[in-house]
Computed example of a mutant assay.
Amino acid sequence: MDRMLRESIDWMEPEVLAELREWRGQTRGESYLPWKEVHTRAKAANIRINGHFNGEPGAHDAFVARRALALLRGHGDAPIHAVVLVRDSDNDEAQRRKGLEQARAEVSSLGPILIGIAHTKRECWVLAGFTPETDDEKARHQELRQELGFDPCLRAEELTAQQDGAKRDAKRVLKLLTHGVVDREHLSMMQATIQQLEERGRGTGLSTFLSEVREKLVPLWTGAPPPRPKHK
């Protein structure tokens, strides 16, 4: 998201970015609000929100997202200008997206609400940015292509989230490519062009999320979304 801001807004230089945006969770003392803590925090705050969504039953994640947004509305320590809801699909992409969209449709007081569904795992988004550089990385990449029968960096949507350590487990594949080095994962996302991430990420939800960033987040600084890039 920071890259999209810098590359979409001419005057937003890296050295001033920290002064122009702050990523936070329920409070400013945390960097994000963990999904696994939403129910406990909502119960402690006496937030009990049930019922249908515009006459429809809630899909997967609709209620937890509803509670998360209620927690953010009651934060009280600083204004919130946008919310980002990001989830792994865990092989349930359609229902999770529907549930998050149901919750988003109810709220207008928190600014734009962005939705990101990483299919099947967030590791698939990182794979979209991975390009082997060293001889060792190239060798491991080639071995995985032969083992899987496809290139996991180009077709990460064919990886799964069903069993840790399985042949097509997205976590296993990324760990093999990066030797489990977090900095190498970070470089994959930062060095790849936005066009590469969009093209490779069409089947994993990454391209859709980047469109949300471009259309909903960037206009907070520019007043209008930048034009969509033309892919050759």
Rank of each mutant, 00 (worst) to 15 (best):
Q95H: 07
Q95G: 05
R96I: 04
R96C: 03
R97V: 00
K98R: 14
G99L: 06
G99K: 10
G99I: 02
E101Y: 00
A103I: 04
A105M: 07
E106Q: 15
V107Y: 08
S108Y: 03
S108K: 13
S108A: 13
S109M: 08
I113V: 11
L114E: 06
L114C: 09
I115N: 04
G116R: 03
I117L: 06
A118L: 09
R122E: 09
R122W: 05
E123L: 00
E123V: 01
E123Q: 10
E123N: 02
C124L: 02
C124M: 01
C124T: 12
W125S: 07
V126C: 12
L127T: 07
F130E: 06
F130C: 08
F130R: 08
T131Y: 07
T131A: 14
T131F: 06
P132C: 05
P132Q: 02
T134Y: 07
D135A: 08
E137P: 01
K138Y: 07
K138W: 05
K138H: 11
R140Q: 12
H141F: 12
Q142H: 09
Q146I: 00
L148E: 10
P152L: 02
L154C: 01
R155A: 14
R155D: 13
A156S: 14
E157K: 06
E157D: 11
E158L: 09
T160H: 12
T160E: 15
Q162H: 08
Q162A: 10
Q162P: 03
Q163R: 13
D164N: 08
G165W: 11
G165E: 13
G165I: 07
A166E: 15
K167D: 11
D169A: 07
A170P: 13
A170N: 12
A170I: 03
R172S: 15
V173A: 14
V173Y: 14
K175G: 14
L177V: 11
T178H: 13
T178V: 12
